[in-house]
């Protein structure tokens, strides 16, 4: 099965910086898998996400989504940045359906159906007719997630998706993301300062030095935990215990 996302020997050195932030990054993500990039501040996790969505080009190596450069398959990628980045001059609903209207321009009934479908995914029943600034942070985050799903992407890229939630809600978010990845057959790449306690998640630790490219996924100089996704339980036993005492 061909990978949905493939990093091959990727290094990233932003302009004006003497050394690469990371190098030798190899990662293949299949449908149904969730990988989490972790690093300290400035460790390159958000840059790795920008490479995955084609907003930056790798200094060396290649990044492919569905076998093609990410810039050529934008409609196969759903992305939520660190702040959610909803457009401040549109209502929540207009934000939600913007990529669908822009890229496919379907009839309004289809727009409504897709909006309902992705809102249901995240348990949002009703969207208040307000701009993002007047909505609660969690709702903004959920709308941004729903927007990222509205084009039925093959790859979902999320920058710290649980950042605005408390600890127990954050765990729910991670579990839910993995469920979405598996049920909808998409790959999820995320970045987080604190990695989730999900046994099924693949943790990619970025810390700035070289790791041999022969490892399946890695980056440099730091801890790299490899957790095979397919046979692992969907959630960490601790989380199961907490949800089903």
């Amino acid at each position: 099965m061909s990978a949905i996302l493939a990093f091959s020997g990727v290094s990233w050195q932003p302009p004006g910086r003497a050394e690469p932030v990371f190098q030798g990054l190899d990662l293949e993500l299949q449908a149904g898998e969730l990988a989490v990039m972790t690093s300290g501040l400035g460790g390159g996790k958000s840059s790795a996400l920008r490479l995955a969505i084609g907003l930056e080009s790798p200094t060396t190596g290649s990044v492919l989504v569905c076998g093609r450069p990410p810039g050529e398959v934008r409609d196969r990628i759903g992305f939520v940045g660190g702040e959610g980045a909803l457009l401040s001059n549109l209502s929540l609903r207009d934000n939600l359906v913007l990529p669908l209207r822009w890229l496919r321009d379907p009839p309004e009934a289809e727009v409504e159906r897709k909006a309902r479908e992705v809102l249901d995914l995240f348990g949002v029943e009703e969207l208040p007719a307000v701009a993002p600034a007047y909505a609660p942070t969690n709702l903004r985050r959920l709308v941004a997630l729903a927007r990222a799903m509205i084009l039925d992407p093959a790859l979902l890229v999320l920058d710290d998706p649980a950042a605005d939630f408390d600890e127990s809600s954050a765990e729910e978010v991670w579990v839910h993301l993995l469920e979405i990845a598996r049920t909808r057959g998409l790959a999820v790449l995320t970045a987080a300062t604190e990695p989730p306690r999900l046994a099924a998640a693949r943790i990619v630790a970025l810390s700035g030095s070289v790791v041999p490219a022969t490892r399946r996924f890695s980056a440099a100089r730091g801890r790299t935990a490899l957790v095979p996704a397919i046979r692992a339980p969907i959630v960490h036993p601790d989380i199961i215990a907490r949800r089903h005492p």
């Binding site: 920008r50 907003l55 909803l86 401040s88 913007l98 822009w102």
Partner: peptide
């Protein structure tokens, strides 16, 4: 001011990542 604010809040990146060309939009 509006476009600069969108840039500060990374809304332009978000547009581009969604496949919406910020220039066209």
């Amino acid at each position: 001011a509006e476009l600069a604010s969108m840039r500060v809040h990374r809304e332009l990146d978000s547009l581009e990542a969604m496949g919406v060309d910020p220039f066209d939009y």
